[in-house]
Amino acid sequence: MVLFKAEKDTLTAYLGGDIDHHTSKNFRDEIDSEMARLMPSVLRLDFRDVHFMDSSGVGLVMGRYKTGLIYGCKVVVASMPPKVEKIMKMSGLGRIITFEKE
């Protein structure tokens, strides 16, 4: 489930529930259609309501980063719970994507 909030040029996607291989397709489709509709210059992915995430979540962020490159949209990751942060950090994603601090 994704809730969206658009403010100025920033689109924030609040992700909720479990992110795994099974659910990531829905997250991807919802985010991509909202990105295509609003053409934001920043996409903020907010993980505060994510209860579980495996490497599919890293793939989801990587994929949005690639889509963002096409649109000229920067991707920011925000509000990671500790277990989400653990995987994001080990993935090395922090080298290309901004991890927003609270």
């Binding site: 495996d54 490497s55 599919s56 890293v58 793939g59 990587m62 994929g63 995987i87 080990m90 090395g92």
Partner: peptide, 21 residues
């Protein structure tokens, strides 16, 4: 190996790395 994948389409190639970690 980290990031190696044959999965394509948004697969991160991190499955085994995560399991090891």
């Amino acid at each position: 190996e980290p990031l190696f994948t044959t999965g394509g389409d948004d697969r991160s190639g991190l499955g085994f790395s995560v399991m090891e970690c």
